[in-house]
Amino acid sequence: MKYLCLIYSDESAWNTMSKAEGETMMREYGAFTEGIKKSGQWIAGHRLQPAATATTVRIRNGKLSTTDGPFAETKEKLGGFYMIEAKDLNDAIQVASRIPSARVGSVEVRPVFETPAA
């Protein structure tokens, strides 16, 4: 079963991190990604540009509207994601808990809606 792990954290924490701390974090992410690729659980995953680069798109009454910024204004911003393959929720929670940002931010684990094969 597929789960999307949405990684939320305080973007300013990244900016205030020392160079060494930032490098450690990147190394940990590298090792984590490597690990779930080896175990066959990795499907996709990316770090995102800061929320300031986000554009929200809507069509209302047939008219396109675009606004600057993310859809939801929260202190912790969506900063990246992994799509993983996991046996069940417990398995997915185990994987999500090893994402380095879980220690400073939070990871939302969402099961992917599976359309029954026709």
């Binding site: 929720l89 398995d91 684990v109 099961p111």
Partner: peptide, 14 residues
């Protein structure tokens, strides 16, 4: 059902 919470006794670690 939807998030597939398993019907199991947790492992020793958990």
């Amino acid at each position: 059902r939807d998030a597939r919470i398993p019907y199991e006794i947790p492992s020793r670690a958990e």
